[in-house]
Design a protein around this nucleic acid. Structure first.
Lengths: 146, 146
DNA sequence: ACAATTACCGATGGATTTAGTCGGAATTTA
DNA sequence: TAAATTCCGACTAAATCCATCGGTAATTGT
C-alpha cells in the first residue's frame, strides 16, 4: 500500500541531480549528505536507475552521476517504476502485469483500477524539472520574507 | 506501494455482506466459499472489523456476520483503514500520523501528498452499496445478452 | 440432552521484503 | 602514486505477509 524507501530515496536522489543539472556530475556521497541518506544504500538504487537509462555514471575522482535526459523529460513515475516495479494499488490492477488469480470481472476490481489510474495520473505528470522549479520558487519565497 | 490481501479480502468479504444485506447473517464459511478465500484467514480479518464496529457477529449455528451500518454508510476506505492502517502513498503523507523523519518542507513531499489525496478521494467515495448496486446491474446486463 | 454449526482466541511458521551494512575491485583525476 | 569514486556481490537482522492449526465458547435444531 505504501511506497518503500527505494522509491522515495530514488526520487529524492534524482531531484538533487535535477537541481544540479548542467553543473557537472554529482557524487553519491554528495547526494547522501544533502538528503541525509546512506551512501551505500543509494548505490543499490543507482544501479537499476543506470541500467534503465535514467542516469549516466562518470567513474573516478570528481565523478558521479548526471541525468541521462533533461529533467523535464523524466517523471516521478519513471523513477518509481524502475525501483518499485509496475505501478498499481493492487497487483491485479498494476501497469503491465495482469494477475491471473484476480478475475478482472470481480465486482471489486473496478475500485482498484480507479485508484491505480489516479496514482498514475499524478506521478506521470510531475517531472523532475517541476520539482526543481518549485523548490527554487520556495527558496525565493523564503528570501522575500526575511 | 500495494494493498495487501488483508485489505483486498476485507473489502471482498464486506461486499458479500452488502450483497446479502437484509437476508440474515452470512457465515465466514459462506463468504470464503463465494470468494475462494481461506476461512481461517478471514477470521483474522473479521476480528478487527468487528472491534472497529463495521460488522456485528452472531454466534452459534446459523450465525455469522452482518454489517453494523447500512451498506451505503460504509465506504471502501473505512474497511481499508481498519485492516491496513492509515492511508497514504508514503508513511510521511499518511492520514493521521505525521512521520517526523520526513520533513514536510522536503521539496518532494508535495508529490506524496497529492497522490495520497487522490487515493483517499477514490476509496472514501465508494460505498459498499455502490459496489453491490453495480454488481447487480452487471448481473442484469448479462441476462439481457443471453 | 445432544450434536452440529459457528464465532472466537492464540500460537506457530515459511517465504518474502525491507533497509540496510560490509569488504573489496575497477576506473579516473590530480 | 594517492585519493576519489563507481561498481559488484554477499550478508543480515528485522519486519511483514499469508496463511495453518488446534482448541474453546456460544447457539440452534432435533
Amino acid at each position: 500500500m505504501k511506497l518503500s524507501t527505494k522509491g522515495k530515496y530514488g526520487v529524492k536522489a534524482l531531484f538533487e541531480l535535477a537541481m544540479h543539472e548542467g553543473a557537472g556530475p554529482l557524487s553519491l556521497k554528495a547526494i547522501a549528505d544533502r538528503q541525509g541518506l546512506s551512501e551505500h544504500y543509494l548505490e543499490q538504487l543507482a544501479a537499476p536507475l543506470r541500467k534503465a537509462g535514467l542516469i549516466t555514471s562518470i567513474r573516478g575522482a570528481q565523478g558521479g552521476y548526471v541525468l541521462s535526459r533533461a529533467a523535464s523529460q523524466i517523471t516521478v513515475g519513471d523513477v518509481i517504476r524502475v525501483l518499485e516495479g509496475p505501478i498499481g494499488y493492487t497487483d491485479c490492477s498494476a501497469d503491465g502485469e495482469p494477475d491471473p488469480s484476480c478475475a478482472s470481472n470481480c465486482p471489486v476490481h473496478g475500485v482498484w483500477e480507479k485508484v491505480t489510474a489516479q496514482i498514475v495520473s499524478v506521478i506521470d505528470n510531475i517531472s523532475l524539472q517541476d520539482l526543481a522549479d518549485q523548490a527554487r520558487a520556495e527558496q525565493q519565497n523564503l528570501m522575500y520574507h526575511i
